[in-house]
């Protein structure tokens, strides 16, 4: 059976470059399939713009299967749109009704300056990782799988934390634009495993210092990050980050 196409009004943030003044521009799209993804809907709009010899809208995307962390977009007041545990590429147009008006905005954070239109510079996250989100100890050749005993519970928690794709939705939705959920996931995935413990104190101190230096806000435990994380990272990681941090400060 043919599904009824959607006619939508889009209010999209357009900004020529980092320095230019941006504004909302209104576009109309018609007969959008409810089975189409949000990014495909933007592709359709961009093709229409190109046909009219207008500049297409710039937005970040890559894998389009929810694992790369490139797509962003603050859609009607929610990062990655009105669904939980998904990225924007996994958001389908069936979440919208015919005639809806959709506000599409870039991530807003002092630490994520706009590059163009809906594309923001998230290299602040890379800088935090560069500050200590790695292990540099020589662990030798590959060991037998059971040579280092790791409790299943810790392995699971580390894996859950490692699911973070660094998309920045936590920062985008936090009223304080805090990066605590991201940093806590990146600290936790190493802190829970023996290989990460050698440099644990230096790591947590350096990563938190870098996060503060880059201008991210402070955590006030509103749990907005947890509600919007496409990988459903829990704020218990933030408590672990705080334990690691306090431990490092008192014991160094």
């Amino acid at each position: 059976m043919e599904k009824k196409g959607l006619n939508l009004t889009l209010k999209i943030w357009r900004q020529e470059n980092a320095k230019a003044k941006g504004q909302f521009v209104t576009y109309q799209v018609s007969n959008i399939s409810p089975d189409c993804s949000f990014l495909e809907m933007l592709d359709i709009l961009n093709e229409q713009l190109v046909d009219k010899i207008e500049k297409p809208i710039c937005f970040d995307h890559d894998c389009r299967e929810g694992i790369c962390g490139m797509c962003s977009l603050y859609i009607n007041g929610r990062p990655h749109g009105n669904d939980t545990g998904i990225t924007t590429c996994q958001l389908h147009m069936r979440h919208f009704k015919d005639g809806d008006t959709i506000y599409i905005e870039p991530w807003r954070s002092k630490a994520f300056p706009i590059i163009k239109d809906l594309v923001v510079d998230r290299s602040a996250f890379d800088k935090i990782i560069q500050a200590g989100g790695y292990t540099s100890v020589n662990t030798g050749g590959a060991q037998d799988a059971n040579a280092i005993l790791i409790p299943k519970k810790n392995a699971d928690l580390a894996m859950d934390a490692a699911a973070c794709i660094g998309c920045g939705a936590c920062v985008a939705t936090c009223k304080n634009a805090s990066a605590m959920l991201f940093v806590s996931a990146k600290v936790s995935q190493l802190a829970l495993l023996p290989q990460g413990q050698v440099e644990a104190r230096e790591r947590v101190t350096a990563m938190v210092a870098k996060m503060d230096e880059l201008g991210f806000g402070n955590c006030t435990n509103t749990r907005a990050c947890e509600a919007e994380c496409p990988k459903q990272i829990k704020i218990s990681n933030i408590a672990r980050l705080n334990r690691e941090y306090l431990g490092a400060k008192f014991c160094s």
């Binding site: 009607n76 929610r78 807003r108 002092k110 749990r223 919007e228």
Partner: peptide, 19 residues
Amino acid sequence: QNMRARGPVGYQAPNKTET
């Protein structure tokens, strides 16, 4: 500090995250 962290331009659409 938290108010400054949002950057020069805020969001147009009010936040709909459940908190």
